[in-house]
Every structure is written in structure tokens, then in C-alpha cells.
């Protein structure tokens, strides 16, 4: 009946029908289920117009070639989010774009750059993002990200409502010029800053599968007095703005090397700034609060690292000191008026 060797129409039809059947089973049906059967989390805000335009810029520049947006349910991905990603997380961002373009492939397959699931949580500073887009190596020395100069304009006289990016003068061809962010850059930053994992009701977050080979971390947990590695925490959390050498960036981020606050024998002000953020000086950008990102021990470790590095010299502090201050410092999540 099925003489494939001699009957070409049988051969083609059978391979077609079986392939379509398998495809429907393994692709179309599960896809359809995921596409129709999900709702946004109650805590998830709708995307604003500006954020949606920013997403379009993200897609157009194909940021997903290097940046993933998925926190996998394995321990090594804890760096990128508080919980594994869920299908609902993508409810708003992965809608079909328009009649020409489909739902953006945000999950990505390459992590040449950091995962961006929680980019807005990690780095809420809009100024930082603008500088970083203009020239990534201004704020992250070893970065290999392209410069997105075409999202900015150079002008001698910016209009009063223009968003001026404080690029150091020596980086410009003409030092009289000012760098102004275009609407596309502002939209893209609005999108990046909006990237935050929506919280789940307590206790419902799925856990991470333990990662192979985290022996040393469990070992350090058994010694409660041992602090984590402040140096690597500094690189992860602080160096993007303050620089790997603690030199900051003039006009945008203050230096920590030689800082009076860091070198103060009493660490109270320093720890309070780390916990609650800081926006006291007009010439610098806003420092985001770290109380929710870092544990007491991690803050103490970073503080001790700073107080003994970059030629700084101040006595170490303790986890207990941070613990005491945490209850007194109001979490200033919104510093801007």
C-alpha cells in the first residue's frame, strides 16, 4: 500500500502529513496554549507609550542578539533576578508589534551582555543608561557593547527642555558641543528602567534548582561571622557608576577614592547612603537605594572593601552595624520628587 520506493505522491504526502502532525503536536499546540492561556500578574504595571516605543527601539537595534531576558530556574541565574521568569512576565512585552512584525524574541539565546530581566531594578539611574548608550566604555571599562551615537545629537545650544547627557568634554570632537538625547534614546531608557520583575504574593515564587558546584558558598554559610567577598560585590553592584578604580565620572558619578564619607571613622553616613540612596548633590546623578538588593552582610562587606581600597583607610564595620541602621533608614525607593 505504501510503496515509497516507487510511488512519489505517497512518499511526499506521508512525509508531509506526519511532519505537519508532529509540528502541530510539538510546536503549534503548546504555542497556542501559552499564547492564549496567560494573564498579566496583578502587580505588573501596563507599559506606557514611551516604554512601548522604547521596546520598538530595542527590537530595531536587535539588542536581543546579546542580551537575554529570561531568569532560568537554576541557581546560577539568581544574579539576574529574585525568582525564575514566568510566562506571565512577558504578557505585555511579547505582544505582536504590528501587521509587519511579530512578537519580539526577547528571551534571547546569547548572553554576550548581561541579562536584562531586572535591569531597571539593578540600575534605575536614567542618566547612567544615557551615558552607557552614548558610550558604554565611559561607565563600564571592559564593556564591548557598541556605541549608539545615532540615538543622540550634538549641539552648541540645547533647548531648555532638552535632556543633556554629561559626556566629558575630552570625549567630544568639539568641546563646545553638548550631547542631547533624542526621543528614541529617552524611550529606550524608559523601557530599560521599566524592566523589573513584578513581585509575586509571598511564598508563591517558584524556587531555583541548585546549581552544580556551589560548595564554597554553603561552606561560608556555616560560618556566620565570615563576610562575602566585598570586592566582587563592589564590581557587580557599584563599579558601573563609581568605576572599577573608584574614580567615578566627573559630572555624573562621584569618586569613592579619597571620599570624606568613605574615610569617616564613623561609618553611619556611608551605610545610610548605601541603604537608602542619595541625591544631595546637584552636580551628580542619583544614587539608587540598595536596601532591597543587598543583605546586611553584603553591605558590610562592600563598606569594608571600600574603606580599605583605593588608598582609603578607615576602620572596618560589622554586619550588626548595618542591621541596626537598616531599621532606622527609611527605604527611599523614590528619591525624585
Amino acid at each position: 500500500m505504501f510503496n515509497f520506493h516507487k510511488d512519489h505522491s505517497n512518499l511526499v504526502n506521508v512525509s508531509l502529513v506526519v511532519f505537519v502532525g508532529l509540528s502541530v503536536f510539538v510546536a503549534v499546540m503548546p504555542a497556542n496554549d501559552l499564547a492564549t492561556n496567560n494573564a498579566p500578574l496583578p502587580s505588573m504595571p501596563r507599559m506606557t507609550e514611551s516604554e512601548r516605543r522604547g521596546l520598538a527601539v530595542y527590537v530595531s537595534e536587535n539588542c536581543a542578539a546579546c542580551h537575554t531576558q529570561q531568569v532560568r530556574n537554576i541557581e546560577m541565574d539568581k544574579t539576574w533576578g529574585d525568582r525564575p521568569s514566568l510566562p506571565s512576565d512577558y504578557h505585555y512585552s511579547k505582544e505582536r508589534q504590528d501587521v509587519w512584525r511579530q512578537s519580539p524574541s526577547l528571551l534571547g539565546s546569547e548572553r554576550t551582555g548581561p541579562d536584562l530581566t531586572n535591569a531597571g531594578q539593578r540600575q534605575p539611574g536614567e542618566l547612567w543608561h544615557l551615558l552607557h548608550l552614548y558610550d558604554p566604555r565611559l561607565v563600564v571599562k571592559g564593556s564591548i557593547m557598541p556605541r549608539y551615537g545615532w540615538l543622540f545629537e550634538e549641539t552648541t545650544e540645547p533647548t531648555p527642555d532638552a535632556v543633556v547627557v554629561p559626556v566629558p568634554a575630552e570625549r567630544l570632537r568639539d568641546s563646545a558641543h553638548k550631547v542631547v538625547a533624542t526621543q528614541r534614546a529617552i524611550d529606550l531608557v524608559a523601557y530599560l528602567v521599566s524592566l523589573k520583575q513584578a513581585p509575586l504574593p509571598d511564598g508563591t515564587a517558584p524556587g531555583f534548582l541548585p546549581s552544580p558546584g556551589r560548595k564554597e558558598s554553603t561552606a561560608s554559610m556555616t560560618r556566620p561571622d565570615a563576610l562575602p567577598d566585598g570586592g566582587s560585590l563592589f564590581v557587580q553592584t557599584c563599579s558601573a557608576c563609581h568605576g572599577a578604580e573608584g574614580m567615578g565620572l566627573p559630572g555624573a558619578f562621584p569618586p569613592l577614592a579619597g571620599s570624606a564619607i568613605v574615610n569617616d571613622a564613623d561609618p553611619t553616613l556611608m551605610i545610610s547612603i548605601i541603604l537608602g540612596g542619595y541625591d544631595a548633590r546637584a552636580e551628580y546623578g542619583v544614587m539608587p537605594a540598595q536596601a532591597e538588593q543587598l543583605s546586611d552582610a553584603e553591605i558590610a562587606a562592600i563598606a569594608n572593601y571600600l574603606r580599605s581600597s583605593f588608598s582609603n583607610d578607615a576602620p572596618p564595620t560589622t554586619t550588626e552595624a548595618v542591621k541596626t541602621l537598616r531599621s532606622t533608614v527609611a527605604p527611599q525607593t523614590a528619591i525624585l520628587p
Binding site: 499564547a35 504578557h91 511579547k94 524574541s105
Partner: peptide, 20 residues
């Protein structure tokens, strides 16, 4: 299958992407 739109919102797109 890769280009038809009806089942490709949300993570539906991701399943199709892996398949495609």
C-alpha cells in the same frame, strides 16, 4: 508555521522560535 501570527503572542513565540 514560523510566520503565521495566531499562536505567537507571549511565550507562544518562543516555542515556535525553538521549533523554527
Amino acid at each position: 508555521i514560523g510566520y503565521l501570527p495566531w499562536y505567537q503572542n507571549g511565550l507562544g513565540e518562543t516555542v515556535i522560535q525553538g521549533y523554527y
